[in-house]
Nucleic acid binder design. Sequence first.
DNA 1: CAGAATCCGATATGATACTG
DNA 2: CAGTATCATATCGGATTCTG
Lengths: 129, 129
Amino acid sequence: MDTTDRFGLAYDVFSRNCPSRGTLEHVTGRWGALTLGALSESSLRFNELRRRVDGVSEKMLSQTLHALERDGLVHREAQPTNPPRVDYELTPLGREVTGRLLDLIHFVQGRMDDVLAARERYDTARGGR
Amino acid sequence: MDTTDRFGLAYDVFSRNCPSRGTLEHVTGRWGALTLGALSESSLRFNELRRRVDGVSEKMLSQTLHALERDGLVHREAQPTNPPRVDYELTPLGREVTGRLLDLIHFVQGRMDDVLAARERYDTARGGR
DNA sequence: CAGAATCCGATATGATACTG
DNA sequence: CAGTATCATATCGGATTCTG
């Protein structure tokens, strides 16, 4: 038994305490995914992001950006001006990750009619419970 | 202003109260992603899944499976035997979604060395805070 | 503008016990 | 085996306030 899984990868997301599990959660979490998606089109300032990601609070956006920056997926560029101007953009690694994330998001969005239909079947089969 | 976004999709995950946001959370959430990943290889019984998805509790697995089944991504096949035997497997839609999910997961796993290096740079640059 | 800090309620999750 | 029900808690997340 070594440290690589059956895919030949050193980090197996199926095991707890595996670092990739944490990064995956940053990427796919509610605010992480939406933030990366917003940044996939252009770099954005803090409050631009806040408006773009509908419903995110300052606190969660700040926290999300810190996690993504720490993982090396987002780059923070601060201008030492007054008032301050800070731009966030995807790193090369962040762009690769986001590309795959968006494939998933767009696919699910494109199949929501199927999902909604499945939900109705499920709900009616169980009498509204 | 209509109901389709700039991708021509009827459901825009960037808007709150969009149903695709919920499904995406089922798919990418901590337990949803791991459950789909486990089922991508073969259909599994409840307790097989529980062992495969390291750390999941009965409660969370049950809850996760219900959500995925309701969204039409997982099929539940119950044998009316005693003791009961219940198999879970991906639906065709579930397989398509999971394929894209695994692309993302495997990519992130394969780049964890980069992520870990970025974290160290981030942490040392800020003196352990 | 870009955030940090704080308070506090909502939700997610885990451990445990119980049922058919 | 395949779950459900209950309880305690940890974490999430939002609103507000404050600062450079």
